[in-house]
Nucleic acid binder design. Structure first.
Lengths: 193, 193
DNA sequence: CCCATCGCGTAACACATGTTGCGCAACGTA
DNA sequence: TACGTTGCGCAACATGTGTTACGCGATGGG
């Protein structure tokens, strides 16, 4: 067997280039050629590792999601449940360059998913997990809250985080870190009551 | 002068076809030819009334926004400020087919705006107006609320509406009207406290 | 040292896209 | 009725797209 090449690593390289292009130039710029260029190769390599362009985009979305989840899990160690909740929410929001790029990718996929059933299904599943995760954190932080109120609270919380992220990406000057933090504080304060 | 044709009406026809295509098939399907087809004409007419495709999309976004604003203003007559706020929020959310299509368009533009500075500027301006409008309604509904708390509340409210709309469009089965209403109730209850 | 095998660069293909310009038909005016 | 103007259908164009296929070069096992 010739040419010992790590298949998974090559795919990761390409996926990485892909979501970087999406974040910096938008989905419509994420052509096969542009992706290849960003990965320092030609389209040949891209088509060699992915059946078609959709696969590449799908993989990029999964990769961004995975990275976010991993970072969130790192905050679960704290003792104060309210602080754990706060730090998780702040970890998701676009407060630094990394998360800003991630949100740019998500926003792009939001637009795509609106018309693509397959993407919508995947997005729906991820969102369900995210919601369940937050629900658990909220229950821990406010055990006395009745289930139906908690459910509505989590709905509002998930939605507000989505909205805040979008605002912060589309209008970063008007939404500095301080303002996002204030919104999260208010969100937590009211959601647990 | 021959051919008495209402210029504005023709433009409106084309804009209408445009946002319908975007809502039902996504932005990437909104090509000049597809728009022309949806408007029952050829690309000749489209290029005759718009300098380029960007203009058409811009006009479509403006038209959708205008329609929403108009419908919201119809709810301002009530006496109970809290009920006015609630009905305005419910009017924006995708509770019927019309608003669902509108949200589909917005979502598409969110994705586009992430990479297009011109669109982002326009979106930012609109969002500022929407925020100011809600701020006024909240102040009327909860005059005792300190300004800084109100500010954070409105941030959360705007964000939550954006997020709820997005969720409802991307995963309509999981977000029936009842659930959206419950979230709005919870949102108002906590935002005014 | 050879050669089967895999990686992937290169180029071609078929098609879709935004934009331009020609030219005809329709119409109000004179 | 004849004319000049305008709306816009139609076709061409250049460019960019996703995808397919060929072929060379590198590589490690025999």
């Amino acid at each position: 067997m010739p040419k010992v090449i790590d298949h998974d690593w090559r795919r990761a390289e390409l996926v990485d280039a892909t979501w970087r292009v999406i974040a910096e130039e938008g989905v419509e710029a994420a052509t096969v050629r542009r992706i290849a260029e960003a990965a320092n190769c030609t389209t040949g390599r891209v088509t060699h590792y992915f059946a078609n362009k959709g696969e590449v985009l799908r993989a990029a979305l999964r990769q961004v999601h995975g990275a976010t989840v991993e970072r969130m899990l790192a905050h679960l160690g704290g003792d104060d449940p309210v602080e754990v909740l706060r730090s998780v929410l702040l970890e998701v929001l676009p407060l630094d360059d990394t998360t800003r790029l991630e949100w740019q990718v998500w926003l792009a996929f939001f637009g795509l998913a609106a018309a693509d059933p397959e993407l919508r299904a995947e997005q729906g599943r991820r969102n369900g997990e995210w919601r369940a995760f937050l629900d658990q954190l909220v229950e821990r932080a406010a055990p006395a809250l009745p289930a139906d109120r908690r459910s509505a609270s989590v709905d509002v919380m998930v939605a507000a985080i989505d909205g805040l992220g979008a605002q912060a990406v589309l209008d970063p000057d008007r939404f500095p870190r301080r303002r996002l933090r204030a919104a999260v504080d208010r969100l937590i304060e009211t959601a647990l009551a």
